[in-house]
């Protein structure tokens, strides 16, 4: 991944930023230049709630390139407290994972782009004990 491309998404990946539409009020993720609901350009960046619940999950055992070290890991859809859904992975899991389980966003290393490339950071979700 190029540095500019990585940099463009830093807000969404590091701080879980989405957008709020000033025309219709829709809050969505990931950030876009227009509201996906009413297509207005009048949008502002907002930080999404950091807590939510697991909607569905999959324990992944056959990983894409670069994720071998994390196997097995949970891929989840999380519904945040304001209803916005985010796809992500779980970290710090010690017990059973269930639908409806409460989780919170944490800042984590995600992967490395080869030995000399960027280290990718972003948001993972961990169970709220």
């Amino acid at each position: 991944m190029t540095v500019p491309r990585y940099w463009r998404n830093i807000g969404a990946h590091y701080r879980l930023e989405g957008i709020r539409c000033k025309s219709c009020g829709e809050v969505s993720f990931p950030p876009r230049s227009s509201c996906p609901k009413c297509h207005s350009k009048d949008v502002e960046v907002v930080q999404l709630p950091r807590k939510g619940k697991v909607v569905s999950f999959s324990l992944l055992r056959s990983p894409p390139n670069g994720f071998e070290a994390y196997v097995p890991y949970y891929v989840v859809v999380v519904e945040l407290e304001n209803g916005v859904r985010v796809l992500g992975t779980l970290t710090d899991v010690f017990g059973e994972v269930k639908e409806g389980m409460e989780v919170e966003a944490v800042f984590r290393k995600i992967s490395e782009d080869g030995e000399e490339g960027l280290i990718h950071y972003g948001t993972k979700f961990r169970p709220i004990a």
């Binding site: 990946h13 999959s58 992944l60 056959s62 891929v75 796809l87 992967s111 990718h120 972003g122």
Partner: peptide, 14 residues
């Protein structure tokens, strides 16, 4: 999705 290590199979698994 891919950035976070979700495979195509895992998305269908959801």
């Amino acid at each position: 999705e891919s950035y976070y290590g979700a495979s195509f199979t895992s998305l269908n698994a959801l």
